[in-house]
Computed example of a mutant assay.
Amino acid sequence: MDVIPVIDVAHGQAVRAVKGDRSAYRPIETPLSASADPADLARGLARLFPFRTLYLADLDGIEGRGRNKHLVPAISQVLPGVEIWVDAGTDSRGASRAVLAAPVATLVVGSESVETERVWTDIAAEAPGRTILSLDFRHDAFMGPDMLLADASLWPSRVIVMTLDQVGANAGPDFKRLEDIVSRAAGRSVYAAGGVRNRADLNALQKIGVKGALIASALHSGKITAGDLKEVAGR
């Protein structure tokens, strides 16, 4: 199973997510890093475990303040060879090219950021093998064009199920929704984002066919340990 650490960045600093309420996010305090500098946090994550992939949520880009263009180069220097999944609020094919210009970057397109199904298909056509769709939910409501959720044929080979109000909430993953998406995914890799608390949650996700999980809080709290990561990665 893939465990993918998450770095959320707002106003240039790594922040701690709180139930998806971005106005409540504050610079992170964690035993993994002495500061809230995203590159410092990346170093801390590398000391914890040799992750192969990292998820970078550029909240400045997502919320329209302008993408932090320096982040991918800075983090890739700290984590050479690591694939960086980047969600920067990409809402056009031109914007996708800017993210994909970094060879280590894989583009994550959040459904909350695209206005129509056609916008998504246009973005995805730029680099299908390097583009991931994040199906975003908040308070049980899908955020994005309805057809993106209804028509699984529009999904790429990798799909994230992002339950925003469970991010940083210590409430557990949305197993029911994840089971539904896995049942419709037709062999696509499905990743869980939001609510993963511990090793037991990872085991339960794997049993329902989830390929991997995006995790932040449980790594900072130590509820998922380096030993857990080693054992899960071997399965």
Rank of each mutant, 00 (worst) to 15 (best):
A36V: 06
V119W: 00
A101H: 10
I75F: 04
R67F: 02
F49P: 09
G44D: 06
L107R: 02
D122M: 04
R67N: 02
V104P: 02
I62Y: 00
H139Q: 15
T116Q: 06
L45P: 00
E63M: 14
V114C: 04
T53S: 11
L100I: 12
D122I: 08
A36Q: 02
G44V: 07
V78T: 07
P128N: 11
P103N: 06
R67I: 12
D122L: 10
V99Y: 11
H139E: 14
L148C: 10
P80R: 03
G94I: 06
V82M: 08
S76T: 06
N68R: 13
G144T: 06
V114S: 10
P73Y: 01
T106R: 13
R97F: 05
G129H: 13
A95Y: 01
L107S: 07
A34F: 09
D151M: 05
P27K: 14
A95S: 11
G61S: 06
F51P: 13
P128V: 12
L107N: 01
S96K: 02
M147P: 05
A46D: 13
A88D: 03
L41W: 13
V114L: 07
S113V: 01
L45N: 06
A34L: 10
G110F: 09
G144I: 13
L41I: 08
L149I: 01
L71H: 09
M143Q: 15
W85Y: 13
P80A: 05
F142H: 10
R26G: 02
A39T: 01
F51L: 10
L148S: 09
D40M: 08
A95T: 01
D122Y: 10
L135T: 08
L54M: 11
I132V: 15
I28N: 00
R26L: 14
G61K: 05
G81A: 02
R26W: 01
V86S: 00
R52A: 15
A34W: 03
L100V: 11
R47Y: 08
G110E: 11
D91L: 01
R52G: 13
G110V: 04
V99R: 06
P128C: 05
G66D: 09
A102V: 00
F137V: 00
I75Q: 09
L48C: 04
D140C: 04
V109Q: 05
V86W: 07
A36W: 10
R52K: 15
E126Y: 07
S35E: 06
S35M: 08
A74V: 03
I62V: 15
G66W: 11
A125S: 14
I84W: 03
R118Q: 14
L54G: 07
L133E: 02
P73A: 10
A150S: 14
E83D: 12
M143Y: 00
T30K: 02
V99D: 03
R47N: 12
Y55V: 00
T131R: 07
E112M: 05
R47F: 07
I84Y: 04
A46V: 02
A98H: 08
N68M: 03
